[in-house]
Design a protein around this nucleic acid. Structure first.
Lengths: 351, 351
DNA sequence: CTGAAAGCGCTAACAG
DNA sequence: CTGTTAGCGCTTTCAG
């Protein structure tokens, strides 16, 4: 294969502008110690020739690769992709992260590794060796895997942990899950609900605990009971069915349920219908995540939106700051979601 | 910032195995002219040290970057992402392409450029200069933009055009849109429908024409009329409403409609309900694309699945073959979808 | 079949 | 403030 050469290199620009390579380098890296006049001249040459630096060459010589790695769990991601259940986590993650990367001249590379596999470290090491990323975005449950975070710390690669239990690296972002759960509770309480059930998510995710705590705290604040009103699922539809059936078949059943994700909310909705209950007439329902599918079911579900794109965008922004050695804000940074009202919540029936 | 160095380089492997750099290079590139014994010894060192070559260094010296670019239209992609209408094109594209890339040691980088902007060429040139991709996946409507294809040809970068009208480069993939439309027609004819309406998509996409042609041909084959039964939308929900209203408000209205994408099908479904018609009792409906949302509406829609992931995967596979200089199959390669039966099709009412 | 030398495009370190 | 020099890790080219 023919050797593929850069068509316009820093040399061409230097020759065109009549300066040294180094001066051009300083201009493209926006370094100090270049006279404005010089800078203008060089920039003019860059624009005229349409010069864009090669990221491979920059990586080779300098310390930057201009690559940020977005690490996701292989098994879960592939499963979700194949199931086509309408979750757009990958989409939101990718678009949010990619667009922010582009603003700073970075590229985002999406990578899958097995969290549970003994080979995590080997897989991650290989990705690091191949790509030499300047930063890594870690999504749950990776964000809490010490095999991953330790390796990153050791390689001195800054990482942004999204939804992690504890702060293992420089950047720690959450989506305010506890406050969002409390918001859902208050929304239902304001409608007059007193018996509010909750379906928790998988223990493997820190956010499951936060959502549950937020629920418990808000219920306590409102002076409402939670006994026999809290079940745990694993985020799957099937687990949602089981939990919903338990909650709805006992005595003193709830007039409203908050489900920790959309699939479990969908399942709850189906179970309610199956049991002859109307949503929202007999049962109000608030979902978590607000993936596109909740808008298309009957009734469209009131949901807590999980701001995935904003979070990914923020992760990249902070990563770039960290790479540049700039000071970071206090952690954790909280990107709060919001409650989207639709048609699955109403006042409870009296009696 | 500290200069970040590769922890294990080809030099370490060479020293460990007691051979020259070149021999190691030959082994990792699977070249001929290495004694099996040598190869084994080198491979052992590679495994022991956990060596993985740096793609930046490989790009610098050799001709390969091990990067494949997936090019999508900026405006449309961002619009679809923000609308959160439940389309999972990006997801399917990314996962299909990325997993196939990984199999061959490549990485997929997702990039957005403005098809309509005068700066397409500048944007694309910049991406090429920065990344030096070994291949590019082009999605509609990029695949038919000569500003893009010419530039790629000129740079001798092989590209896979998905859903392009004509073959501008080495790889040309379609999803058999005409045959899929015919399949939808035959499905409806088999149920007893004779007046079958069709809502075409935006002229900007070659596949809109193919789908329409497939419909017209299949209708002709069945000896059925198409006059006043064919409207054109632009793939948007709003355009679907307009088209559906036209089709359903005339005399001799259709007993079934095929919509060229899911949003227009959803719109048709809504219009039918609004007009007091039942789906599928009074109107059967077949949708195109089969994005997740069609499973969650009432009734769940029978749809032609568009095999986006398989297509992206195939594009990458063929690209890798092209990069290696291997022979390619005859073009276009057709990745056919299938008809997914759900609940929006029934026999027409008699009368 | 294997090795040595040269250099890809850029930046770090140092010298002026 | 600007230029020079020396590589980064790998593949290509050319010798053996």
């Amino acid at each position: 294969m023919a050797r593929r050469r850069q068509s316009v290199t820093i040399k061409h620009v230097a020759a065109d502008a009549g300066v040294s390579l180094q001066t051009v380098s300083r201009v493209i890296n926006n370094e100090a110690n270049v006279r404005p006049e010089m800078k203008t001249r060089v920039q003019a040459s860059i624009d005229r020739l349409g010069y864009v630096p090669s990221i491979a060459a920059r990586r080779m010589s300098g310390s930057k690769s201009y690559i940020i790695l977005a690490l996701n769990d292989r098994e879960r991601t592939i499963e979700a992709w194949k199931a086509r259940e309408g979750s757009d986590w990958v989409d939101q993650m990718l678009m949010g992260g990619m667009l922010k990367c582009a603003e700073h001249g970075y590229r985002l590379i999406f990578e899958l590794v097995d969290t549970h596999d003994d080979n995590v470290q080997r897989e991650l090491k290989a990705a690091i060796a191949a790509l030499q990323p300047d930063g890594v975005v870690l999504t749950p449950p990776h964000a809490d895997n010490p095999l991953i975070t330790d390796l990153l710390v050791q390689h001195r690669i800054p990482f942004a942990a999204i939804g992690a239990e504890t702060q293992a690296g420089p950047i720690h972002i959450t989506m305010g899950d506890d406050r969002m759960a409390a918001l859902a509770v208050r929304h239902l309480v304001a409608k007059g609900h007193e018996r509010i059930g909750f379906i928790a998510g998988s223990r493997e995710y820190a956010l499951s605990g936060w959502r549950k705590q937020g629920y418990l705290a808000a219920m306590a604040d409102a002076g409402l009971p939670t006994e026999h009103l809290c079940e745990r699922g694993d985020f799957s539809y099937a687990s949602g069915e089981v939990a919903a059936r338990k909650l709805l078949s006992g005595k003193g059943r709830p007039t409203a349920i908050i489900a920790s994700n959309d699939q479990m909310a969908l399942a709850t909705n189906a179970v309610a219908h199956e049991m002859g209950m109307r949503v929202p007439g007999d049962l109000s329902l608030v979902s978590f995540d607000n993936t596109p599918v909740v808008r298309f079911v009957q009734p469209p579900l009131t949901a807590i939106d999980q701001p995935v794109a904003d979070t990914a965008s923020c992760a990249v922004e902070l990563l770039v700051q960290a790479i540049r050695g700039e000071e970071l804000p206090p952690m954790p940074v909280v990107i709060e979601g919001s409650l989207i009202e639709r048609e699955s919540v109403a006042a409870p029936r009296r009696g």
